[in-house]
Every structure is written in structure tokens, then in C-alpha cells.
Amino acid sequence: MDQAILQVNHLSKSFGTHEVLRDIDFTVKKGDVTSVIGASGSGKSTLLRCINLLETPSSGEILYHGKNVVGRGVNQPEYRSHVGMVFQSFNLFNNMTVLENCVVGQVQVLKRDKESARKTAMEYLEKVGMAPYIHAKPRQISGGQKQRVAIARALALDPEVLLFDEPTSALDPEMVGEVLGVMQRLAQEGMTMLVVTHEMAFARDVSNHVVYMNQGVICEEGAPKDLFGAPQKQQTKDFLARFRQN
């Protein structure tokens, strides 16, 4: 169980002269549910996008089962198919139905045959409660429903780890619950997850590891009960205090 899937070493990222991430180190082990919290602009999302290579890190390395995936000569699509990603803005394919969204990756990337891809897609759509909507187009369903389909689309590829980039930030308050519920169920089933979130209750109750980021560095990390119950650093205390007031 103690097997490290992803290991981030000395990761830095700059946009021009602006340093967004500085010397980030952390590890994602199998079965971990890690929440990354922090103020907007602290580099949480950039970290996640670097891990999925949607951004190219300026320096440092990302080890996937011990192999560096940063730099030339890496089969990026192959790596990405093992690391699922759920976006803040869903990014469902607008030209496809809900079912096609979940099938296309399996057929094109994993080269599964259409029938088994359809079965797998249905299995996961059922799991997120979207099976009745398989013929709908993304523009015809609500934000919460879109996000659940996006989760099913990522799961259909059987990824080893699932990255969530503020999955509930673009949703109306009443839709947040349905998405968090699905994520909680996944966590209970042992899915390895890395979640960038503003939902403190989720970070505290569902994850087993919390990372607090501040201005591009990991300020503090630890088990949720330690980090929320007895934060060590002043910045962490201030950040959590601001959240309690809201």
C-alpha cells in the first residue's frame, strides 16, 4: 500500500518573470486522498496542471512510478491516460453526447473495442448517477451533471490517480453536494485522488492528507486533524481563521 505513484521533486514554474511555484516536493501514494488548499493565486491549480503536463514545469522533475515524465522523449499522451483530470470548467466535448464523451477516450487512446468501451462507460455513468442522460449533449445538462459526467469520463480510462482542479468552484451551491458526494464515494472505494479545493469540509472529512500552499510554496502539510486542529505556522492559522469567519 505504501507505493508512491507520483513523486514531485523540486518543481518550479514561472510565467515570464513571475514565479508561480517554487521548489515543490511531495508524494502521492496509492490510495491517498490529498487535498490541496490555499488562497487563490497560491499556485494550486498550476501545480495540478504541471502534474498533468498541461503546463511545462520550468525546472524539477515529476516521477511516475520512479520514471521522470518531464522533458523530451516522454510519451505524454500515454502518461496522461494513467493520470485522469477533472477540470473546474468541465471541458466535456460539446460535439458528443454524454455516452460518447465517456467512450471516445477508451476507443481512441486505450484501443478498446466499442462494445466493451460502452459497457465500461455505462458502469461509471451509473456510478455517478448519469446513466439516464446518456443521449444528452453537454449543453443540455446542468453544471453539476456535467461535472459528474466529467468524473465518469476520467474514470472510464481506469486511471491510477485522479486529479481534481477545483471541481465545484464553477457550480451553483445546490449542485456542489452531488459532485462532492460522488468524490467521497470514490475516496471510500480507495481511488487515489489529488484534489485542489476550496471546500474545507471535504478536505477535513474526506482526505487523509492536506497540503496548504501559500505564494507558490508548500507552507504546511499533514493529516487533516493535525492541520485543521493544530496548525503550526502562522500563515496556516490566518488562512484557516479567514475561512471560519466566512
Binding site: N52, L54, Q76, P77, E78, Y79, R80, S81, H82, G84, M85, F87, S89, F90, N91, L92, F93, N94, N95, V104, G105, Q108, V109, L110, A150, R153, A154, L157
Partner: peptide, 27 residues
């Protein structure tokens, strides 16, 4: 076409050609 569509396709491991033919060009 929204850049998010490209990111969504890349995130599930599609190559540039697959992204183009299945997601971007139809739209």
C-alpha cells in the same frame, strides 16, 4: 473552439491528431 476542449482531450491521453479529428475539427 474553447481551449478547454483541447485540454479535456489531452487530459484523457489523446494525441494532437486525435484531438483534432475527434474534438476540434467537428466543432
Amino acid at each position: 473552439v474553447d481551449p478547454g476542449q483541447t485540454e479535456g482531450a489531452k487530459a484523457i491521453g489523446m494525441t494532437h491528431v486525435q484531438t483534432m479529428t475527434h474534438v476540434i475539427l467537428p466543432q
